[in-house]
């Protein structure tokens, strides 16, 4: 679902770029609060191990929990990148691949998950020319905002209905692909690349099938992370 340059007009690309910048800014501040803690920072460089700051002034610093979170984020990001390379065939000579938005949010929370997906998109666009650089904002909106943040809040809402976690996860993972592809169709329509209604129906019908692959791979990855690495789901407060 990576949009290449040329599919969107410059107005849409710029608008999506601005929207994506806003979302990333918000995500950065949320994640900053999550990985830092307020307190007496551990010893300044050179002052030795375990000695607390001599000035006694409270400040934000990345502590043990923050480091653990960042290493989790590194793993989720590289795993999503790896799995996105694995295109699976669906009907009519078409293929799909994992987007991973819900998987990332499940372990990192919606904001950290969105930063993780953004990092994947950035690496793909700059090192592999997979997804255009001018339309990077649009791709971030589709896959990190709609495919991750919005889908994760959908998952949280679904859980309130009392359905089992696996069912909620399945529905949300499937929906994340449909949301992302609808957003993509909307951008194509706004750009005048194709009529909105036709683009929407074509994108949704194909991605409703690809979403089944997303669902299965997400369930598999989640179970691997929980059982193999002993990871726990992010607790939404």
């Amino acid at each position: 679902m990576h949009i290449p340059d040329g599919f969107l007009d410059s107005k849409t690309a710029a608008g999506m770029g601005a929207a994506a910048a806003t979302v990333i800014g918000l995500a950065l501040s949320k994640v900053r609060a999550l990985v830092t803690e307020l307190g007496l920072a551990p010893a300044m460089a050179g002052a030795g191990n375990g000695i607390k700051s001599l000035t006694g002034k409270a400040q934000r610093f990345v502590g043990h929990a923050g480091k653990t979170y960042l290493s989790k984020m590194a793993m989720v990001t590289s795993l999503v990148f790896a799995t996105q390379m694995f295109n699976f065939p669906i009907a009519n000579g078409t293929s799909g691949h994992l987007l991973g938005g819900l998987f990332a949010a499940l372990f990192l929370g919606p904001w950290g998950g969105a930063l993780s997906i953004t990092m994947v998109l950035l690496v793909q666009a700059t090192l592999y020319a997979d997804g255009g650089l001018i339309v990077l904002g649009a791709n971030i909106m589709n896959m990190a905002f709609f495919g991750c943040i919005i889908s994760y809040f959908g998952y949280v809402l679904l859980k309130k209905t009392g359905l089992s976690d696996k069912i909620c996860l399945s529905i949300a993972a499937w929906a994340s692909v449909v949301f992302a592809s609808s957003a993509c169709a909307l951008e194509l329509g706004m750009s005048g690349t194709y009529s909105l209604v036709d683009a929407l129906s074509a994108m949704i019908s194909v991605h409703a099938v690809i979403g089944i692959g997303e669902l299965l791979i997400t369930l598999m990855l989640v179970s691997i992370m929980k059982n193999m690495l002993g990871w726990e789901e992010y607790r939404h407060e």
């Binding site: 295109n87 065939p89 000579g93 078409t94 293929s95 592809s181 993509c184 994108m203 194909v206 991605h207």
Partner: peptide, 11 residues
């Protein structure tokens, strides 16, 4: 991995 075009490319 499948070398078929992905959803967006196909459309």
């Amino acid at each position: 991995a499948s070398s078929f075009p992905d959803g967006l490319e196909f459309i």
